[in-house]
């Protein structure tokens, strides 16, 4: 694993060009937090609530569908506002690519990205082996527990909702959980939380299985195998076949729903191998 990545990309595209999507993502993540925060801080109400459930401009309800599923599993029949809100959110994330949430919205991503950056800088190699399918088991657990217990057990410790809620409503001792995730990612498992454990990521993986917006290695023949994209990618296995599987007949489209559409691979590539594209049939016809 390289300590620094994207040197070639910075040389060809400039620092800004080689960090375009990273900066955009940070603006998106922090901007969404800011929109939630200016309400309680300055009385400017764009977004009320938090990521679990919110209201946009006092009109559009939005509810985390995973949260609502836990509530229903716990035996509650929600009001129509929450159901509508969950539908709006689910459709939105389906359109933009499922785990788009993970890299563009989720605040925990900032922590885990920091952990990975530090991991590279400190050259931490050791990584405990953990299946990337673990998250689906955790997802199943977080939906079974409410059925048994009648309460949303996962939400007692869910770091994603805890972090976002904490920033707006007060963190208390919640930072312990966040430091725990940081250390887990830094010292125990590479990309441990987002890439292996988080059930919300697993949920959006399922939501985005057939999403139209994808990253494609459309110029894979230009790839010089510098492996920078593998180094920065939170789910590097998704790159393998689209990049190198041409003679096995694999499409250059990164089809795996594990991909978070973070587009960091586009940033660090000096050869412009990747781009964001759609897999709508209309596009294919136009090409022909």
């Amino acid at each position: 694993m390289k300590a620094s990545v994207g040197a070639e990309a910075i040389a060809t595209k400039g620092w800004l060009g080689a960090h375009k999507y990273l900066l955009l993502r940070r603006v998106s993540q922090l901007g969404i937090l800011a929109l939630f925060l200016i309400g309680p801080l300055f009385g400017v109400w764009v977004l009320k609530g938090n990521l679990s459930s919110s209201v946009l401009l006092d009109t559009v309800p939005m509810t985390d569908p995973f949260m609502l599923m836990q509530s229903i599993a716990a035996g509650h029949i929600p009001e129509i506002t929450a159901v509508l809100g969950a539908l709006i959110v689910a459709v939105f994330y389906f359109m933009v690519g499922g785990r788009f949430f993970c890299s563009w919205v989720c605040p925990v991503n900032v922590i885990t990205d920091l952990a990975h950056w530090l991991r590279r800088k400190l050259k931490v190699r050791a990584s405990t082996k953990l299946s990337r399918k673990t998250r689906f088991w955790v997802l199943a657990m977080s939906l079974v527990l409410p059925v048994v217990l009648g309460t949303m057990a996962w939400e007692l410790i869910n770091p994603v909702s805890l972090f976002h809620r904490g920033v707006i409503f007060g963190m208390g001792l919640g930072w312990i959980v966040l430091v725990g995730i940081f250390l887990f990612d830094l010292l125990l498992v590479e990309h441990g939380w987002c890439g292996h454990v988080c059930p919300l990521g697993a949920f959006y993986n399922l939501v985005g299985r057939y999403s139209p917006i994808k990253v494609s290695a459309y110029q894979r023949e230009k790839c010089d195998k510098c492996m920078d994209c593998f180094t920065v990618c939170t789910e590097p296995h998704v790159l393998k076949m689209p990049l190198f599987g041409e003679n096995k007949g694999y499409s250059p489209m990164i089809e795996s729903a594990d991909c978070t559409n973070c587009a960091r691979c586009i940033d660090v590539c000096s050869q412009d191998v990747f781009k964001i594209t759609t897999r709508l049939p209309i596009k294919a016809e136009v090409k022909q």
Partner: peptide, 13 residues
Amino acid sequence: LAACVRCGLCVEA
């Protein structure tokens, strides 16, 4: 506990 999604909308209201 089964119904509340911990969104804090009531708190802000």
